[in-house]
Computed example of a mutant assay.
Amino acid sequence: MPLSRREFRTGSVPPFFVLLGPDYAGKSSVLAELRRTATPWRLVSVDDTFLAPEHALIGRLRRDVVKDVAPHESRWSPDFLAAMMHTAVVHLRDQLVNGDPLTPAVVDSYYYKFLAKCRLAGVPDDPLLTWWRSFPPPGRIIYLDVSPENAWRRSRDGADLNVLEYYGPQPQPCGFKRYQRDLDRLVREEIRDLPVTVLAEQTDAARTAATVRELITHELG
Rank of each mutant, 00 (worst) to 15 (best):
L34H: 03
D23R: 10
R42D: 13
R36K: 15
R35I: 03
V30N: 01
V44T: 10
N98I: 08
S4N: 01
V69I: 06
A32Y: 03
K113N: 00
Y24P: 00
W41V: 05
T37P: 04
V66F: 03
V46I: 14
F80L: 14
L43R: 00
A116R: 01
A105D: 04
V65R: 03
D48F: 12
V30S: 02
V97G: 01
L34Y: 02
Q95F: 09
F16V: 07
L51Q: 12
Y112I: 06
M84Y: 15
D79P: 05
S77M: 12
S29E: 15
L92E: 03
R62V: 14
F8I: 15
D100P: 12
E54R: 07
A105I: 04
G21V: 06
E54H: 00
F17D: 07
S12W: 04
S4W: 00
R63W: 08
H55P: 05
R9G: 13
V89A: 13
R6Q: 14
P78G: 02
R5N: 14
P14V: 08
Y110G: 06
P71F: 13
P2S: 07
D94Y: 13
D48N: 13
T39Y: 08
L31W: 04
T87P: 09
Y24I: 00
K67L: 11
E7Q: 15
